[in-house]
């Protein structure tokens, strides 16, 4: 019936593909991105998702892949200051952009206010969705808007969590992000620059 397949298997192939790990004949692009403040130049193939570029090419595995359909928010990162699904973005589309991931948050070495709020309110269990949620909240926090409960709910709406039931996530987000007055514009601009 079926052909034996042993002769089709060839572990003797080159251990590493030549060039970048995705060996494919065409469609390569040079991109320059700033990732967590550091300039990165890389060659990527057209179809490489931004999330795979970050995780597998740059080793920034804090950004997680939950659905690859844009539904769960686990891969949320900041591109030019706004929250974006990195599973629905090609690496090549990020050329010239400023990209920030969860690894950038504890800038001083200490957990930042948002991270501390999630710890103190027990706003996480398995921690798989947490980086995406932190980045969604970072985008909101860094916007110049007044942040009321509606804004928090809207910005959390696109992030699924299966462990916590959201109650402590809401509490953590409120603790860290609620503010009655809008943020001075220049402060927001500084962060975006």
């Amino acid at each position: 019936m079926n052909e034996p397949t042993a002769d089709l298997n060839h572990p003797q192939l080159p251990r590493r593909p030549l060039g970048p790990p995705l060996s494919e004949p065409s469609c390569w692009h040079d991109i320059r991105v700033t990732v967590n403040g550091a300039p990165v130049c890389a060659q990527v193939e057209s179809r490489l998702l931004l999330v795979d570029f970050l995780r597998h090419r740059l080793g920034l595995t804090g950004t997680h892949v939950g659905c690859e359909q844009g539904s769960c928010g686990a891969c949320t990162i900041l591109v030019d200051g706004v929250g974006v699904r990195s599973c629905l973005t090609l690496a090549v589309q990020a050329d010239g952009s400023d990209v920030r991931t969860v690894e950038s948050l504890a800038e001083s070495g200490e957990l930042n206010r948002l991270q501390r709020a999630f710890h103190e309110e027990h706003g996480m269990q398995c921690g798989f969705c947490t980086p995406g949620i932190l980045m969604s909240m970072t985008a909101l926090e860094e916007s110049s808007e007044v942040i009321d409960d509606d804004a928090i709910m809207e910005h959390l709406g696109g992030n699924l969590c299966r462990c916590t039931g959201y109650v402590n996530i809401r509490n953590a987000a409120r603790r860290a992000c609620l503010r009655e007055r809008s943020r001075p514009v220049d402060e927001g601009a500084d962060r975006d620059a």
């Binding site: 595995t61 997680h64 969860v102 948050l105 957990l111 710890h119 921690g127 932190l134």
Partner: peptide
């Protein structure tokens, strides 16, 4: 007691299966 596992996870330093990097 606040969880001791949080710090790593909050920094994006969790180690899930898809995070493992092994040469080759």
């Amino acid at each position: 007691i606040p969880r001791v596992e949080d710090d790593r996870l909050l920094r994006g330093q969790g180690r899930f299966i898809d995070d493992l990097q092994i040469e080759g």
